[in-house]
Design a protein around this nucleic acid. Structure first.
Lengths: 175, 175, 175, 175
DNA sequence: AATGAATGAGTCTTCATTCAT
DNA sequence: GATGAATGAAGACTCATTCAT
């Protein structure tokens, strides 16, 4: 990955996250990245390839993000870390852009990519089993649905008080 | 609202919901609506005006949808009806398109429009007060977040079993 | 066929004939036709559609051109008119462009379109039968091959003296 | 001429013959030749230089091809060999490509290069003189025109039966 | 109200060519 | 000699919008 490749990816990430994939022209990406437009196509074949490259990075980041949770043995910690995932991924601007884009793309492409969540889901199921919940699987699913809602609100609703709801949720689960 | 105006709005709704706002050209809308392209601009000024008209319809529909819940006096019924809102709005194809579009647009425009939810939120708060919940406001917020997650999953994750999670949630709230 | 459509077709014909299909940009065509570039696509779908429109015109013109020969009853006249076809089609500039383009395209697309020649070929076979030639079919084929050579030379070889060779050929066939 | 130079020329020949000069990108040539794109420009300056190199090769090959005819003393053999030139040059795939390209280029560049044919033309004139033809010069010209037609048909008309017409022509000339 | 021809700016993409290594 | 990253201009095509009818 050369320096210019990185700057293209960075510029694309920012713009796609801000304006959306379709609304961002390759010429804008090139301008912000400080490279010629042609270079985008040499490295990523086409605009879609650029998006795919970003999505792939997303999968890697997701794996990294999940690793910390999946490897946790204390079930309460699993639940707590899962809930706080959203906060963790929104502190740094670049990272916030990144995850926002992942959600935006989901709606623009109408692909959820449930498989990416599977490791996390399993970790949650295990945790709920250990914690003696009656229906650990449903409980885990419920929680991931809530997380999706959390992201939606966090990224779209400027008036949303994430901390309050988050603390409330943590209390609910006793974590 | 003339007949042609209606058919333009209908065509736009379908296409925007399927392909997204940016990806749908006015010419496609005109073709599907069976009218000339120029007519769209005479009636809605520009492409954005067309979107605004649809969004406005959305607000009216939302009010209608919420009315049934807001007017309910039995608190359990309020919670139950709220939870089942998603199912109710996804039975008819045209309606499913409609609500899907509302979510798509939220992400494309990055406007949540929290004010639209206020009547529902208040109804929920009241219900939770009546039901004796400790923190009715947070409880209500938590529930709306969950609902947003539910919509996300329902519209994007083909493998998602909404009924299972929904029944589980209803059991949780004892409704 | 509106006025602008005609002027697009005319400009395209000239340019394709002069510079070749691939080497002529749609923007050049638009400029010469005095219309916006977009209009080309509204009327002919794509650059290829523009070419097809010209080719189709070509087929019609060819039918017209052949009609005079095919309807001729005097066999000597059939042969003579066939031989002079080349001269006839090269007097007016616009027509010369047109037929030159037909040949250019053949080489660019590698399609001969033998079926277009069939009526002429049959007329020639009949003529040679009437004239008592031993192998009328081969004789007719030989003549059409010669005609193709004539066109090649006429359009490409500036030093070529068509009249001399043509008179010689006419003498050969006694017409 | 280094090995890489040769492979560039070979790749260019094949591609230009198949797709045409304008339609073949230098990057395609480089890829097929298995060299970097830059190397083409180091060796041939620009895309046009590449074409010129191929054309020049064409002249050498033409000289070689004509030599056998020009040096022939038997006039009948001269005519026969001339007629069979087309067949001879189309047996080997690489050679067929080569001559096809020469014709394609003629039409793309609109340069006939009559001077290349001169030695052959003179040989034919001489032959027709020896054979006692009335107008040897015109006869020779007529024959070369026919040859151009033969090539046109052979390369473009898939349904064309070259052997039949060729044998007929040979019979005509009694060779 | 309604049409559809027409526009011009913009989109993604290709391509010949250059240049540092 | 050889590579391949990088460029800038140009290519085909799309699209929101206007306007005469």
């Amino acid at each position: 990955m050369t320096e210019k490749q990185t700057s293209i990816l960075k510029a694309a990430l920012e713009l796609f996250a801000q304006e959306g994939f379709k609304s961002t022209s390759t010429s804008k990406v090139a301008k912000r990245a400080g490279v010629s437009e042609g270079l985008i196509f040499r490295h990523f074949d086409n605009k879609d390839g650029l998006l795919q490259a970003i999505i792939q990075q997303g999968e890697e980041r997701a794996r990294l993000l999940f690793a910390d949770i999946v490897l946790e043995t204390d079930p309460k910690e699993v639940v707590r870390k899962t809930l706080e995932m959203g906060k963790k991924t929104s502190m740094v601007k670049e990272e916030a852009d990144f995850w926002k884009l992942q959600f935006k793309i989901k709606w623009e492409l109408e692909q959820y990519g449930a498989y990416k969540m599977e490791p996390l889901l399993n970790a949650l199921i295990n945790a709920f089993i250990k914690l003696g919940y009656d229906e650990p699987e449903l409980e885990a699913n419920f929680l991931t649905v809530f997380l999706d809602g959390l992201a939606t609100r966090f990224y779209l609703d400027k008036t949303f008080d994430m901390d309050a709801v988050l603390n409330f949720a943590k209390a609910k689960y006793g974590v």
